[in-house]
Amino acid sequence: MKNFKVNTKRPICIWMKYIMLMCCNSLVLGCKMQKATEKTAENPFIRNMYTADPSAHVWKDGRLYVYPSHDVDPPRGCDLMDQYHVFSTDDMVQWKDHGEILRASQVPWGRKEGGFMWAPDCAYKNGMYYFYFPHPSGTQWNKTWKVGIAISKKLASDFKVVGYLELGDDNYAMIDPCVFIDEDGQAYFYYGGGERCAGGKLKDNMSEIASPMIFMEGLKDFHEATWVFKRKGIYYLTYADNHRQGNKGANRLSYATSTKPLGPWTYRGVYLDSTGCDTSHGSVVEYKGQWYAFYHNSILSGRGNLRSIAVDKLNFNKDGTIQKITQTGIVQRQVEDKKN
């Protein structure tokens, strides 16, 4: 009887090929799923009304919320802006309008003529949501700015005005409030308008300044629209600059970095070119492992005072600097306009 040898290598090879094939299929499926979750809605992503100055936050329910201002149609300028809505998403594609949360007539100390409900911000601490909004208290709007505070236990409804921040007698261009809460729980308040940017610590009650406001140092060509966030130990302050193209306003979004929340800051450059509006205003937030930059443009209306909010992915270089954003949605609209 001849010796019969069992080929043990062949079954092992077959199983190895099978396992490798399954792994490859899993990787492909995983990549497809990742690409699916990375999709964003077509810009502008809010089309049922005109919106601007988006303040984006991720809250404990896992959704991403945007608190913008509202441009009134037909426009007369930014003086008619009179109310705030809230929008949210859990996939960056489908957006929910939670409705109106506040308007000028609900501000007891506000100017009798209403309007001037400009860029807001929202923060969460101590089981409460704090909504900060700029609004004048008198007819001479640019000399009577205050930063109002409305609070609610809900993140998109039932806000009630409880007062305003006491920031001293210098009320000029006290607009575009921003609240940043650091990892240690300390909250910081910033505002920025009229080519100056100020910041200071907030008390734990989120309604009083804990230290005197100081003007931020190191910012280049600051105009307005302060936004502060932190990534990998680096503090970022983004803002609209004073860039002009001819006689038409064309602010860009620039940024600076620091190792401290109140600076001094080091200017790093422009991360978003002009969006076609007379103004620019943005926010930056991380959601499900991807960073996003929110801003506004005038794609839908073609008018700088009828704006719409948009969002694009924001990426960083290894040294922490921001890669310039490629705006989506603009090219498509320009092509359509040329055809028409």
Rank of each mutant, 00 (worst) to 15 (best):
V228M: 09
Q327E: 06
S157F: 10
V162D: 03
K288I: 11
A256I: 10
K154C: 12
P68Q: 01
S274W: 04
K339A: 13
A156L: 07
T139E: 15
P134F: 01
G138R: 14
F294N: 04
G127A: 13
L155R: 12
R307E: 00
D82R: 05
S157W: 10
F45G: 00
Y239G: 05
D337W: 13
Y236M: 01
Y129S: 01
I309C: 08
N297C: 15
Y271I: 03
V335S: 07
E195F: 13
S283D: 08
P136K: 00
E336L: 15
T238R: 04
V93L: 05
Q34Y: 11
G163T: 11
F131I: 03
V161T: 15
S298P: 02
E336Y: 03
N3P: 05
S55Q: 08
G185D: 13
V179L: 02
Y295G: 04
T257W: 12
C78V: 11
I325M: 05
G233H: 09
K288R: 14
M16T: 10
R244Y: 11
R303Q: 13
S207F: 01
V284D: 00
D91Q: 10
H281R: 04
K232H: 13
S26A: 15
V66F: 08
K60T: 01
G192S: 01
D312G: 09
R63S: 14
G194Y: 02
Q327M: 14
N205Y: 09
L253A: 14
K160M: 05
M49Q: 10
P54K: 11
Y67D: 10
G200V: 04
G329I: 08
E38P: 12
G110Q: 01
G138M: 08
D221P: 00
K260Q: 08
S298Q: 10
C277Q: 02
E224H: 07
F316S: 15
S280P: 00
S26Q: 05
Y287L: 02
F294Y: 13
Y129W: 04
G249P: 01
A293E: 03
I181N: 06
Y50R: 08
S105I: 03
G269E: 12
Y295D: 05
